[in-house]
Design a protein around this nucleic acid. Structure first.
Lengths: 159, 159
DNA sequence: GCGAACGTACTCGGATAAACGTTGTCCGAGTCACAATGG
DNA sequence: CCATTGTGACTCGGACAACGTTTATCCGAGTACGTTCGC
């Protein structure tokens, strides 16, 4: 799985702590965890393409959440970074070879494909059940004053 | 996800139809679906390493299931091909950067990692609940005489 | 006729290249803020 | 003092390489079978 998923998750949580009034640049988000700035920017662009964050160019520009964190699930973030297609894709090899089952002789879905999709659906369901707001809530449960800490870290000077 | 997973699944189902008395060569298994022989052989080796199939060299050699199909789950096959480690691995980026949370200051598990693992566990549970025997049963439900058909296809001459 | 040894063909197994996707980097187009200027 | 205009720096955005993993292929070690030779 793409490593950028973890980066994007942390960035979303931090953006939810900062709030929608202030934009945070990719450089600051990257410096927070010492990540490669340009590559993180690429991941943030993917989030922007899926409407999870909005981007503002120019001075005072940067990224901010496009909607309240209650409405951003972990599934949304994974989909934005990894792409919408399933990890397992059935190549329908049973239709190949000398004994190929034609589409008329066996129109039913491949049973292996069916099983894999079923499992992947369960995976998606679990990820869709957890939102950025949930994670933020648990973080604040641990450290009540964390919001101010993060805001201050992102507001200090440049980089 | 590795394409060989689908190949391995189909091969296991077919081997379960053939039964443990007869070994099937990688060449025959590959020809059945018109797959690259040498590469399929590599996947079968992975299955052998995890004790899902046994291999016999020499004439009359080939592969056969190492245990009854009731005891081979889809999870077993995926693990053999893809490897045992999780798809998502937490790099603990929160411990990097200028504001790194030291292991003493925050010993709890990363919440993002926790969520991802929870989802992946649900995925594994679903795959572990389905065995090769289950798939075979559904296939035979569709086509009762399928066992004989597959046996004949694998026993005819060479390749 | 029977047993054993030999040769042969066949199988897997791991070592070796090519292709693709991910990771990482760079510079340009666009935009907002600020400062200087004139009324 | 206020509106306007020009400048400048800062931001994202997409185009451009390097690395690693997956895909694909080949040839060698080992084995069981069939045959042949000797008794």
């Amino acid at each position: 799985m793409n490593e950028g998923v973890e980066w994007a998750m942390h960035c979303c949580v931090n953006l939810s702590l900062v709030g929608p009034d202030q934009a945070v640049t990719a450089a600051k988000l990257a410096a927070y965890y010492d990540l490669p700035t340009a590559y993180l920017n690429k991941q943030l662009q993917a989030l922007a393409r899926d409407g999870i964050v909005t981007s503002s160019p120019g001075p005072r520009g940067g990224f901010r959440l496009a909607r309240p964190p209650e409405r951003i699930t972990m599934m949304d973030v994974v989909t934005a970074i990894e792409g919408p297609e399933d990890a397992f894709r059935c190549a329908e090899i049973r239709r190949q070879g000398p004994h190929a089952e034609s589409r008329e002789s066996n129109p039913a879905r491949c049973l292996i494909d069916e099983g894999m999709r079923h499992a992947e659906l369960a995976w998606r369901r679990e990820l869709a059940a957890r939102t950025i707001a949930d994670i933020r809530a648990k973080v604040l449960e641990r450290a009540p004053g964390w919001t101010e800490v993060v805001r201050k870290r992102y507001s200090t000077g440049k980089a």
